[in-house]
Every structure is written in C-alpha cells, then in structure tokens.
Design a binder for these strands. Sequence first.
DNA 1: ATACATGCAAACGTTTTGCATATCC
DNA 2: GGATATGCAAAACGTTTGCATGTAT
Lengths: 149, 149
Amino acid sequence: MQADKDAFRAFLRDHNLPATPQRLAIADTVLGTDRHLSAEEVAQELKTRGASAGTATVYRTLEVLVRSGLVVERDFGEGFKRYEAARGVPHHEHLLCTVCGRVTEFRDERLERMTTLLAEAHDFSRQRHRLVIYGLCGECRRGSGRASR
Amino acid sequence: MQADKDAFRAFLRDHNLPATPQRLAIADTVLGTDRHLSAEEVAQELKTRGASAGTATVYRTLEVLVRSGLVVERDFGEGFKRYEAARGVPHHEHLLCTVCGRVTEFRDERLERMTTLLAEAHDFSRQRHRLVIYGLCGECRRGSGRASR
DNA sequence: ATACATGCAAACGTTTTGCATATCC
DNA sequence: GGATATGCAAAACGTTTGCATGTAT
C-alpha cells in the first residue's frame, strides 16, 4: 500500500492538484486498511492519528481518490457509503454481517460469467453488477460478538 | 392485484388499523403496478389519479405495506429506496438500466444455492442476498430511448 | 367517543455547496 | 503570485418525527 500512496501522490502531481497534508492523511487512512470505511469513520480515524480534516475535505478527497481509481465507493444499503482501497484487485463480492457490520470480500469467477449471461438472457448488456450477501459472521454466530466492524 | 388490495384491507382490519382513503390510494398505486416506485413517484402517481397524500403519510403507509408483506423495500444504491409489489413471488434478482432506470426482474435457482454455499465457504450463515446487475436495457442500447422509469 | 391517521413543519443523517481564508507550488 | 484547497456554516437530499387537528370505526 506504500505503492498506492505513491501512486496517489503521482496522480495529484499529474493532475496539478496540490498534495496537501489533509489529502495525504486521508489517502493514508483509506489506502492503509482493508476495511470498508464510511466517511465518518475516515474522519474519526484521522483524529486518532493526530491528523484531522473538515467533513467537506474528507468527502472531496474521497472523491479524488475514487477518480484516481485507487479507491472504490460502495453502497451496501446502510444509508451511507463506504470506501475501500482498490488494491488493483478486480471485481469482487461482499459479505456483510448484519450484527457487527464486518465486511468480507470474495471473488467468484462463475458469478462473473453468470451475470453476463443472465443479463443477455433478458436483453440487457451488462456493465457491472453488485452482490451483497447479508448474514452472520462466524464470530457473531458463535456469540463471541464484538462491537462493530 | 385486486386480491392484493383485498389482502391489504384484511391486514388493516386484522390489525385494527383504519382503512383511510390515503392508505387505500397508496396501496392501489403500489400494488397496481409492476414498477419499482420511489416514495416520490408514489406521491406523484397519487396526484395523477386525483388522490393525494402528504409525504409523511406516503412513507408511513409504505411502511405498513412492507409490514403486511405485500410490498418489498429495495435499495439499488441510487440514494433512495424503491417499493415493489411482492405479488407472492419469492426472492428474485434485478437488472437496472443505467440509462432509463428501468428495472427488470428475474429469478435464478442456481444463484440462490450459490450464495448459500459462498457464505458458508467464508464462515457466514446467509440470511439473504441482493444482486443487482447494472447495464443497458435493449431499448436504450438500440437508441430508442425513453425518458425514465 | 376514542383511538388512530393525517398534514405540516421541523429534525434527521449523510453528503454537497458557497464563500472567505489559507496553502501549495 | 496565482491557482487551488481548506473549513465553516448553510443547503440539499431522502426520510423520520412531533404535534395539533381530523377521521374511521
């Protein structure tokens, strides 16, 4: 993910966008975790590490990160969006624990093919798809619950 | 769908909920179409047919309809929710045209099974899943576009 | 009669925007 | 120095809630 951080600096440079401390801190936060953070969580995380940025800056920087391709925006129907480091990983699906909110990723080739075929069967040309499986993660099922994430 | 409307009246009766004209009009609107309406579209549709209801009433009635099981709430990540007549149809997936917003449904048994297996493979116990395939519907691909839906 | 629904307007949580000020290059 | 970012507060968006009033049974 150091590579990603460098890539972000390069992106900023290439687009004549100032590399401000806020931008770099936000990028560090999002690119340095495999969690799927909400904008609010990003802001909190910043404070934890001593940095900090106004809400507007957080949103605006997340937008830049998404444009750079280094971060992907996700909507799991929770009423807010989450942001995930792209890590050059191709498309994948998500499992969302309905108790603790933990997000797990997985990739399945069959699914990729199926969605294309299913779309065609209904006279659609597939652009992308999104699968979220809601359920209980192992920890929560076993009652060894934790607060969140 | 007349059956559904009757079922809603029965639901109201059984739960000692007054069958107000607003509730019946909203139920008629949602149960009488196979479209996936947003709350705002429901309100507009009401006006079109001479009826009308305040925003709060629309939302509150949609909630009752969902509780009755006659309507299902959907979130396709568009920033708002849509409401779909359940029609006794079991779970199904959705195709969403990214140009005109048209929603098409389909059912696939393999997918049902796959999601359960995929969840298990990741130590999750599946509760439900949501698959949305985004793409171009036939009409929009052929350029015979239409305004919305 | 009485419990419940309605409509309005205010509150909500998330995200966006306007603008004066501060910062990067 | 000049373009661009920041932070704040206000607005926007879909949705929810409080409350005075109206209505179904």
